[in-house]
Amino acid sequence: MTVVVEGRAITRDYLVPGSLTRKAKTVHAVKGISFAVERGKTLAIVGESGSGKSTLARIIALIDPASGGELRIEGQPVDIASQRLTREMRSKVQMVFQNPYGSLNPRQKIGDVLMEPLLLNTDTPAAERRRRAEEMLVKVGLPVEVFNRYPHMFSGGQRQRIAIARALMLKPTLLVLDEPVSALDLSVQAQVLNLLADLQAEFNLAYVFISHDLSVVRYIADDVLVMNKGEAVEQGTREAVFAAPSHPYTRELFAATPITDVEAIRARVARRQALRAATI
């Protein structure tokens, strides 16, 4: 088993500059998290909003530096604050951002969005770049006709699939996905999750997968890390975490998951009708 990415006691502080009306302060967004992801495996990170998931994701994806701790990619210590990334390292690790719209250049056509990583990081000839971009579009469930459209011409879920397609263009070893399916309806979500599973099997990809949807996590994860206020409050295999969640926050997560039980709907509808009758 080869470990693709490993973090040891990773921390991240944000300095919030002061102004006339307030003092400068430090936010401790990630407070010493350790983890390892093996080739072909998926680590899911769940946790409350603001608990530091995206912050940790950007560190793992080599976009932001950590404030402390050590990050290793395939055994090599990597610190983007002190070393320049090689083209090879850059293509190995890719990220899908939580906010797909903000991560797409509004003036760049979708075809160019997909071909750009190949242009910048590889010596793939133009015709081949185009062929691979078209192939990827189809894989994420979009027709090739959209090649010349701009990002604003897509729906939320379509843009999210474009962001996923872009991250896959370089056939990375490690893919960090920040809420990649949260804007997708169940059918497209299933299509994307199936695609991710296929690619993982085909290329032995490692995933770090951030999600707040426990049913998705249960489907995709090998290991689960639960974050709360910058700390890992629970960490283990999917089976262990789902069978016996030990931290109160994890249990709260399970309890708050909405239910589609017909009896519960019936009770709620009756309550609303009574309320409406009372106010008329």
Partner: peptide, 8 residues
């Protein structure tokens, strides 16, 4: 969509 179930 961007919220965990407790905040949702």
């Amino acid at each position: 969509t961007a919220l965990d179930v407790t905040i949702q």
